[in-house]
C-alpha cells in the first residue's frame, strides 16, 4: 500500500486527517512525477501553522514548504468544515452541551 500502487498521474485528496498520509512519501511521489496531483486540507504538523497568519514569518517546516513549491499540489488551511451551516450547527450543539451541563443533565455528546 504505497503511492507506487497508484496509476501514474493519479490525484490524491485528503480532507480527513493529516496523519493518513506520510508527507515525506508524498513529496517523493510528486517529485518523481508519478503523482498527477495532491490536494490537502489537513497536514500532519498543521497545529503550528493552520488558522493563523504566518505571511511575515520564516516558516521552518521544510517538508511542508517543499510541498507548497510544486505546481500540482494544492493546500488549504483546514477549511473543509467551514460553511455557514456547519458553524450554525457547531454553535447550536455547543450551546446545547453547555445547557445540559449547567442543568446537571447527561449530554449525548459527552466523551468523558
Amino acid at each position: 500500500m504505497t503511492f507506487a500502487l497508484l496509476p501514474p498521474g493519479a490525484f490524491v485528496i485528503n480532507t480527513s486527517r493529516g496523519a493518513l498520509i506520510d508527507t515525506e512519501a508524498a513529496v517523493a511521489a510528486v517529485k518523481s512525477g508519478r503523482l498527477g496531483g495532491l490536494a490537502l486540507d489537513v497536514y500532519e504538523e498543521e497545529a503550528e501553522l493552520f488558522f493563523e497568519d504566518h505571511s511575515s514569518d520564516i516558516i521552518q517546516d521544510d517538508t511542508f514548504m517543499r510541498l507548497l513549491s510544486f505546481p500540482n499540489v494544492l493546500v488549504t488551511s483546514h477549511q473543509a468544515f467551514f460553511t455557514r451551516e456547519a458553524m450554525q450547527n457547531i454553535s447550536a450543539t455547543t450551546m446545547g452541551n453547555l445547557d445540559d451541563f449547567a442543568a446537571g443533565r447527561q449530554t449525548p455528546n459527552q466523551v468523558a
Binding site: 485528496i13 480532507t15 490536494a39 486540507d41 494544492l74 488549504t76 477549511q79 473543509a80 468544515f81 467551514f82 460553511t83 451551516e85 456547519a86 458553524m87 450547527n89 457547531i90 450543539t93 455547543t94 452541551n97 445540559d100 451541563f101 449530554t107 455528546n109 459527552q110 466523551v111 468523558a112
Partner: peptide
C-alpha cells in the same frame, strides 16, 4: 466532564473535497 460536537455538516467536508 468533556462534551464535543460529533457532527456539524458532512456536506461541507465532502463538497470541499470535490472543490479541491
Amino acid at each position: 466532564q468533556v462534551a464535543r460536537v460529533p457532527a456539524y455538516s458532512p456536506y461541507a467536508v465532502a463538497e470541499h473535497a470535490v472543490a479541491l
